[in-house]
């Protein structure tokens, strides 16, 4: 096994955030069902609430991702960090529903947190002043939720540096095709800036596979140059290599079909798809308790404070035990505390 693969397998992107398509679909369906179950009691039952489906949720997330990318561009955040923010955002909505937490709020939090995670300093005041009608508190309200939602996996592996490497390799192999390589570089980067973030390829493929797929969309000849077919020869090593190459090519082809669903031109054309009806539908079935995240967090904090006060009122005798109960107090259970890493995936 190549050491490259072993190293990728040790990343959190592989260990925690890689799913087969079926598993991802299943996760989204269960997230949707759970959210419905939780929200239903809080909504008026008379006209039965019309919840958004898992597919509609995904469309809403995609729409919000476009908004996120545009906001990132407007704020002058570098490409890689925009991509990180988009991936944080999409990961969050795998196990959280748009009905529970508003995507329009979380996308700002994602941008802010991605800047933090990628060491790109952007002060909270600067960000909130640039985004109209947003307070610093609103951005911070979802921060911990976001971290929890993505299981504290802050390291996202992007295909951008892989593309740099591939272009370097191509330049070395074909020095006379400077112009063709330059064009391929620019266009592949355009694709990588948008298509992978809009589709689920980050969940299903590795960065280098995504990069190869994008490169194949632009210039298939270059991919063959980077992953050359084996020469003639029928020993076992060659056979194994050919088999591996076929599998890699299969994965790249699958990834490419996914990427082609969202070509980069969609960034500017996305508004053509009517999103208003869906957003209106979402407004009607949102969790009323979490409509205002700031107020929600504040109430939670106050609740916690009150609880502590109540604890302080307990007499010393009850805590230290008057004699016989000393053993019991020693074995007080602590598992009532909420797990900071959230429930199981």
């Amino acid at each position: 096994m190549a050491t490259e693969d072993a190293r990728y397998r040790s990343s959190s992107q592989y260990r925690v955030w890689s799913y087969s398509p079926a598993r991802l679909q299943e996760l989204r369906a269960s997230t949707n069902a759970l959210a419905k179950q939780q929200i239903a009691p809080h909504l008026p039952a008379d006209p039965a609430p019309d919840f958004v489906t898992a597919e509609e949720e995904l469309r809403l997330v995609q729409w919000a991702t476009v908004e996120l990318l545009r906001a990132g561009e407007f704020l002058g955040i570098p490409t890689e960090i925009r991509a990180t923010a988009a991936i944080f955002f999409r990961r969050f909505y795998v196990t959280n529903s748009v009905m529970t937490y508003a995507p329009t709020e979380l996308l700002k939090t994602s941008l802010f947190f991605a800047c933090k995670a990628e060491n790109h300093h952007m002060s909270l005041g600067e960000l909130s002043s640039k985004l109209q009608g947003t307070t610093a508190e609103q951005i911070l309200a979802g921060e911990f939720l976001l971290c929890q939602g993505m299981r504290f996996c802050f390291d996202v592996h992007h295909p951008f540096r892989a593309l740099e490497g591939a272009i370097l390799e191509l330049r070395r192999q074909a020095p006379h095709e400077e112009e063709r390589i330059r064009q391929a570089h620019v266009r592949t980067r355009e694709i990588l800036k948008f298509s992978p973030l809009m589709t689920d390829v980050y969940f299903h493929y590795t960065p280098s596979q995504i990069m190869m797929a994008a490169l194949q969309m632009v210039d298939a000849g270059f991919v063959d140059m980077l992953i050359p077919g084996s020469g003639s020869g029928d020993d076992t090593a060659t056979a194994a290599y050919t088999q591996m190459r076929d599998r890699i090519m299969g994965a790249i082809a699958n990834c490419r079909t996914m990427l082609e669903e969202e070509p980069p031109s969609r960034l500017t054309e996305f508004w053509i798809t009517p999103m208003k009806p869906l957003r209106r539908k979402l407004q009607k079935c949102r969790d009323p308790a979490r409509l205002d995240l700031v107020a929600y967090q504040r109430s939670k904090r106050e609740e916690a404070l009150n609880k502590e006060k109540k604890d302080a009122n307990i007499a010393d005798d009850d805590v230290f035990g008057g004699g016989g109960s000393a053993r019991d107090t020693k074995r007080r259970k602590v598992d009532a505390v909420e797990d900071p890493f959230g429930p199981a995936l």
Binding site: D5, H157, G165, E169, T206, P207, S208, M212, I227, I248
Partner: peptide
């Protein structure tokens, strides 16, 4: 990185 994880 250009080739890392190709076989995953």
């Amino acid at each position: 990185e250009a080739f890392a994880g190709l076989g995953v």
